[in-house]
Simulated assay, not measured.
Amino acid sequence: MSKRSASWVMLGACLVGGGAQACSSTMWPADRDLRYDTYPEAPKVWMRQVPGTITIRDCVGPDFQTSLRLDMPDLLPVGDVTYNGRVMPAYEASPDSALLAFSHQQFFGWAGVALRNGEEVPYPADVGSDGGAVFAPQVYVFSRGGRMRTFETRGTLTMTSVEKPAVNIVMPVRLRVEFPATTCPLQDGNETLQEVQMAELSTPGSTAREKVVAIRMNCGIDPPRARMALVDAGDAGNTGSQLTPTADSDAQGVRVQLLRNGREMQFGQSWDFDPGTGGVHDHPFTARYIRLNEPLKPGQIKGEAVLNVDYW
């Protein structure tokens, strides 16, 4: 009987030892996609805040010191903003992004502190009788005044403690804020080149009758930003500069060729359009006849091109 009793005592000791918990931390990242159909026109107006959570457990003992470091490598400082009486450094991802600010605070504990990108900030951990505490890092979104554009930013918030290294943790921070893009109606164009004599296209590769043609874009008061590409309507895989003849074309040995900025087009190749102003914008191209390496036959030659515009 004494032997069985000793066995039970040993089992009880193992259970107590296995149930002890070590000081630790867990986190819920500040990670959010936000979308706005409108936005405040006034500067530094609070729009939204995105929380993260850092929880420490079983850190029984006296309060201890932590250090916080915010690292958002693609953000640049742009002065300060104020929210609920707290002045915080403000940052931008681009000259037309919303403004961002960051803070850190403990639930039911110390007051919040503003976080400055790339700098360490001391912050005391006020643990409860169970050795636990919950912290709430925050990302604040403010208007910049005027139009804002979609952006995304990523980084980290690192919490460390010399006294309690078990709570060290790195929290990802990611925020994407979408705003409606400026879109611009395009005016269809229908241009006719002057008639050309066969003698003007006497050798393969010769060209004639150049004419500037333009597609007009009316953007209103807002500046657009877009990626554009001209494609051959008759052959989406055409990467050259000569338009595929339409079905009602009957001339042979000749094509309509398009140029941009004095160079032969490469259909399907994109370019960026960011004029910085609204209003009317013309996109000029040059059209001309070009002789092919085959016999000429009089008639009509037609081609169609489509300008694709991807706004952002």
Rank of each mutant, 00 (worst) to 15 (best):
P40N: 05
R116C: 03
G276D: 13
S143A: 09
G118P: 10
T244Q: 12
A251I: 14
I215F: 10
R35D: 05
Y311W: 13
L100E: 01
L259F: 14
V280Y: 07
A287N: 08
G279C: 11
T244L: 06
G268I: 00
N308K: 15
G52S: 06
D63A: 15
L201V: 03
Q300D: 13
W28P: 00
G279H: 08
V173R: 02
N117M: 01
K302Q: 14
V87C: 04
T53E: 15
L258K: 02
D232A: 01
F273D: 06
N218Y: 06
A114R: 03
R260N: 12
D222N: 14
I56A: 04
G237S: 15
R174E: 08
S24I: 07
R260W: 15
P122C: 03
S143I: 07
C184Y: 07
C59S: 09
S202R: 04
E200K: 07
R216Y: 06
F108T: 11
S67C: 09
R216H: 08
D74W: 02
L15V: 15
P62I: 06
V177I: 11
V78N: 15
E191G: 00
K44I: 00
E163L: 11
G52T: 02
S161W: 01
N293Y: 12
T160K: 08
M265N: 05
P275Y: 08
T183D: 08
A22Y: 05
W271F: 15
L76Q: 15
V196H: 08
C59T: 14
T150D: 01
Y123P: 00
V170R: 10
N190R: 06
Q197D: 11
D80T: 15
N238A: 04
G112A: 05
K164G: 05
A98W: 02
